[in-house]
Design a binder for these strands. Structure first.
Lengths: 231, 231
DNA sequence: GTCTATATCCTGATAGAC
DNA sequence: GTCTATCAGGATATAGAC
């Protein structure tokens, strides 16, 4: 009790790595226990089930990140009437990129896993995620509302959604950016990442209200290809 | 040959629906064939393997979307020296939202599936996606470079990455936005979605260059929780 | 707490009749 | 092209010795 089982930690570490590389569903308990040097039955003993292990892996790194977000948010707005928008954005997006692990490689993997789980198709995993995340989202929603008092509520909800999506995708898929930029961008450089991400998001949050822009032109539908078409 | 097998279409339809609801990996061929009223062996006959079916499902709806993107891009910039930024953004993000299927419900499901596949963990699925997508990405990258001639190349790559992420997440997870906005946002309204999304992205793309903003403050690391800590 | 051994079920794929 | 029947293997989970 005073010193948690080393096996348990190693199971979490191995699961985190394998989940990130291959996804939750494609990773078997056998792979995990083998990589951790543990027995197959140990997962059920420590975590009850595979689902319990997934939840434990996820909560282990999302907990500190959300705590740091709230801490930075408290420093940033401190009940001010008009808190600094950039500081709020930074409080939201910086912690997951600054997550540190014993090894930097593992920190990057955890970040990727975090970003990908944002848009997982599996409903039960989605539930784990949403439960941990929605409190943070609401707290930041209120801060953004104070920082952008003239923005209608609907616009604010949309933009918070966009902001989360931008962050999640940036975390989820750093390799593609590195490859397609021909080496011009280095997603492993946290400071560089934030120096691009934060201004992009701040500008987006400050965009003109949607009711002041012109309507959408050319609403041409994209036809779905069907096997048979009337001709 | 003249009339493609009805079974084949029904398999694609059923697979699309189930893949969207439960993910690729969690959906079995038995579920698909049962839903399609077909035999288990029919998948291997028509598509060779489950992987072949996944690729076929994906290509069926991503092909027309990318074609429409390129068509709209051609209309928008037409080799102009300084094409309209908003038109380029719209050419990129509008087609997937305007994708139409025989039933509107299915169109929404296809859109969700598309958005989620952007950040799939499975490497072989990722490959299917990237192959279809990178040509479009390069073409749009060139158009953005013409529309934003003063932006350094690295900034451009970063922002294109952000833009794609915002779009993907918006497509992937419409339900959460609807729930958390308390009904203020309606993600099923395509015009409303675009009227919020496009200004956000245009403003982000026009943000100040990253080398003109102040450096990042407070690089405090988020500590990873470990079982044992030196005390 | 950790192990072996096993139960039970489901997966993708295929052989071969029709 | 479509079917039935089946194969070979992997999945999670558990019972029970130590």
């Amino acid at each position: 009790m005073t010193v948690p089982s080393d096996r348990k930690q190693r199971l979490l570490d191995a699961a985190e790595t394998l989940f990130c590389d291959n996804g939750f569903h494609a990773t078997s308990l056998r792979q995990i226990t083998t990589a951790a040097g543990a027995n197959l039955a140990s997962v059920n003993y420590h975590f009850g089930s595979k689902h319990g292990l997934i939840a434990a892996v996820f909560e282990r790194f999302v907990g500190p990140i959300n705590a740091e977000r709230l801490r930075m948010l408290h420093d940033a707005d401190g009940d001010a009437e008009a808190p600094d928008l950039e500081a709020i954005v930074r409080a939201f997006v910086a912690p997951p990129f600054r997550f540190r692990h014993a090894h930097q490689e593992r920190a990057q993997r955890a970040m990727r896993l975090y970003g990908r789980t944002h848009s997982t198709a599996d409903p039960s995993l989605h539930a784990i995620f949403v439960r941990q995340f929605d409190a943070v989202r609401q707290r930041f929603g209120a801060a953004f509302a104070r920082a952008l008092p003239d923005l209608p509520e609907a616009d604010l909800s949309w933009r918070l959604h966009f902001l989360i999506g931008t962050m999640a995708q940036t975390m989820a898929d750093p390799d593609r950016l590195a490859a397609l930029s021909g080496g011009a961008c280095d997603p492993s450089d946290v400071d560089a990442t934030l120096s691009h991400l934060v201004p992009f998001l701040v500008a987006g949050m400050r965009a003109p209200r949607s009711d002041t822009v012109s309507p959408n032109p050319a609403p041409r539908a994209v036809a779905a290809p069907r096997g048979r078409r009337p001709s």
